[in-house]
């Protein structure tokens, strides 16, 4: 069993600006734990988390994979970058956070070079204009507001994620039922040649949460 990362160094004030790990986070941790042995076998050189928030997930992955992996994180929220770094330090995982949306400064150098990508996006369906506004605040609102079908932010990254994935890479995505999973899965296969499976799913209050795992379609 892989221990849940220690977040005791983070304060109430931190969680006023940064998403506090909740059911969706824990489902993602559980899914990564299910796949832990496979992830060790892949032995990723580079692991990237988009929207790293508190840094809980990347620190957890650090606990699985150890120090032979470079852990990169991005977040549009500077508070999140700071927390990600300190959570890494608290859990003895070196994380290099980058304050940016998605991964655009990395596409040039990491074309088909990232072995593990995780993204727990703002998936909550909201009014469409709420997405842009939420991302612009570069604060906690941006961690959940997802636009009409909750895909306003996720959709942007899904268009580009394939460019980053190495041959044997895996990409883990958190989604809810309202995001229309069959549509996501079909699109990713048809447009980007990425096959996917549901690793875990769980109902948490009103949310029906899923973790999808994408791999290259090797036919």
């Amino acid at each position: 069993m892989i221990p849940t990362p220690d977040l005791s160094h983070l304060t109430k004030e931190d969680f006023e600006h940064v998403y506090e790990p909740a059911e969706d986070t824990f489902l993602l941790l559980d899914a990564l734990e299910v796949d832990a042995q496979d992830l060790k076998n892949i032995a990723p050189t580079i692991c990237l988390e988009i929207g790293s928030g508190s840094g809980c997930v990347l620190s957890f992955i650090g606990g699985i994979l150890g120090p032979s992996t470079l852990y990169l994180s991005t977040d549009i929220n500077p508070h999140a970058c700071r927390c990600t770094r300190s959570t890494g330090a608290q859990n003895k995982v070196s994380i290099d956070p980058i304050n940016v949306g998605f991964a655009s400064p990395l596409y040039n150098r990491l074309k088909h070079a990232v072995d593990l990508i995780v993204f727990n996006p703002p998936y909550v369906p909201t009014f469409e204009d709420e997405v842009r506004g939420a991302q612009d605040t570069r604060d906690i609102q941006g961690s959940w507001a997802g636009g009409l079908d909750g895909m306003g932010v996720t959709g942007v990254f899904l268009e580009h994620v394939e460019e980053l994935l190495s041959l044997h890479a895996r990409f883990y995505l958190v989604a809810v039922k309202d995001n229309n999973l069959p549509k996501i899965q079909q699109n990713m296969l048809k447009k980007h040649g990425l096959q996917s499976e549901v690793v875990l799913q769980r109902r948490a209050g009103r949310e029906h949460l899923f973790v999808l795992r994408f791999v290259r379609n090797v036919m």
Binding site: L70, S94, V100, Y107, N108
Partner: peptide, 23 residues
Amino acid sequence: MVRLITHNLLACHVKGCNTNNFP
């Protein structure tokens, strides 16, 4: 932390800036 390992992966991503944008 900007370690040189990370610096070695970052390129300018301003719209239209596609050449000589690294390092």
